[in-house]
């Protein structure tokens, strides 16, 4: 029962994140979504993934988002109200669409004939990452280096524009 409540809460917070007109609230909603996902991960005995989700997705990414929001310009009140109305017009079908999809998923059950693999013999994520899936770590390092390179290129462009 608690699992279902957490799943419903996850969808509701995600919906609120998408619908809220203020970007700051959307960033906070994203952090809350990550927190609920973290609780689900802990309950499913996935503590390493949960720790990553909590520290990075609920901690670092909202901080980056809020920093970006603080560096952007605030709209004048009149324009903000106009855009909010326009947003409402574009976003109102989303809750209805969600309800329709949820009802469809509830009533239409596609039979799943999936053959499950043998249960794992190694239950430690550290052993999996360091011994069996070491290439994942190389990939992660490459992605991190690509990110650093991307940020350097972006900010070099900014400095040149300022000169």
């Amino acid at each position: 029962m608690l699992n279902i409540m957490l799943l419903v809460l996850l969808v509701l917070i995600a919906l609120w994140t998408a619908l809220t007109p203020l970007l700051l609230r959307a960033a906070i909603g994203l952090a809350l979504t990550s927190v609920v996902l973290t609780i689900i991960m802990f309950r499913f005995n996935a503590p390493y993934a949960a720790a990553f989700e909590l520290s990075v997705c609920a901690g670092l990414i909202p901080v980056i988002f809020i920093s970006v929001i603080s560096l952007t310009h605030r709209l004048p009140l009149k324009e903000f109200l106009k855009r909010r109305e326009d947003r409402l017009r574009r976003f109102w079908p989303l809750p209805l669409l969600l309800l329709a999809v949820a009802a469809g998923l509830f009533f239409v059950r596609i039979p799943l004939n999936i053959t499950l693999p043998w249960p794992e013999t190694i239950a430690d994520v550290r052993v999996v990452l360091w011994e069996y899936r070491r290439t994942y770590l190389f990939g992660q390092l490459m992605v991190l280096l690509a990110g650093v390179f991307g940020v350097l290129v972006l900010f070099r462009g900014r400095n040149e524009n300022e000169r």
Partner: peptide, 14 residues
């Protein structure tokens, strides 16, 4: 039943 492997993939995704 492959929780460790899925955690590895989730960490990579994050």
């Amino acid at each position: 039943g492959h929780s460790a492997l899925s955690q590895g993939v989730i960490i990579t995704v994050i």
